[in-house]
Design a protein around this nucleic acid. Structure first.
Length: 252
DNA sequence: ATGTCGAAACATTTTCGA
């Protein structure tokens, strides 16, 4: 089973890239973030024409998540149960016994800001919910844009902002790991300075001035089954790219 | 210019968020 995650920064703008990528890579599931479109504007016909089912949780202008799958998902959940939130950041479903959770984690803006407090509260709610999800579905993949670079090697050494690399954010990431999850990317040898996001400004992609903030965490029963995890930088080189690249895992 | 991008609206330019 091949599962990928990709923050597309507007599904409307990026739809041609997404359709091309689906055709070329044939993932069993593709988790998308930052749709920036309402459910009524979701391009379902185009995605179905490409041979995919879709579940989606969108809103106007901001946020929005979806999971595209070759086979239909079961037990779909929208938003974190019990966490009151206007922002559409979570969708989950089960595919062949694997619980796939797709998340667009809050950005947080700046350490200490109101948005940072929201980010931390959201992360705590997510962690609490996943604890119970793991009890009912031990095979689980948490895919998405975490907006956290978990270790120093996941950020360009010249990254000066605290946001995405601060201690509280990294502690929240560790709390997810402590649920029994593993960062699939680090199961394998990776090139130095492997990132998944580069700012549009300052020629950041060309300079490889980026962060690794898009992740696939997998639960213990999936670790031995995981045969590969990699980023695909090709879409970042296209005209009008998303600022994020897809990250992929392959499960035997 | 915090040097780009995408969306929205008191809209052909400005604002907000990222």
């Amino acid at each position: 089973m091949k599962i990928a995650t990709w923050n597309v920064n507007s599904l409307k703008v990026r739809l041609p890239h997404v359709l091309d990528w689906l055709a070329a890579h044939q993932p069993d599931a593709l988790c998308l973030q930052e749709l920036k479109c309402e459910n009524k504007g979701f391009p379902l016909a185009e995605i179905e024409a490409a041979g995919y089912h879709a579940v989606f949780n969108g809103q106007k202008t901001y946020n929005g998540v979806a999971i595209l799958t070759k086979e239909p998902l079961a037990d779909v959940v929208y938003d974190i149960p019990g966490f009151a939130d206007e922002q559409k950041r979570i969708i989950a479903g089960t595919l062949d016994g694997v619980r796939i959770v797709c998340g667009y984690f809050p950005n947080g803006q700046a350490v200490g800001s109101e948005k940072f407090a929201y980010k931390m509260a959201w992360l705590e709610a997510l962690t609490g919910w996943l604890k119970s999800e793991l009890q009912s579905t031990p095979k689980l993949v948490l895919a998405g844009d975490y907006n956290v670079a978990p270790e120093d090697r996941d950020a360009h050494p010249d990254w000066k902002d605290e946001i995405h690399v601060s201690v509280p954010e990294r502690d929240a990431f560790k709390a997810l790991i402590a649920l029994g999850l593993t960062d699939a990317f680090r199961l394998f040898e990776q090139p130095e300075r492997s990132f998944s996001w580069w700012d549009y400004r300052l020629m950041a992609f060309r300079r490889n001035f980026g962060l690794r903030i898009d992740h696939l965490l997998i639960s213990a029963p999936l670790v031995d089954k995981c045969s590969a995890c990699y980023t695909d930088k090709e879409p970042r080189k296209l005209e009008r790219p998303s600022d994020h690249t897809p990250v992929v895992i392959e499960l035997a």
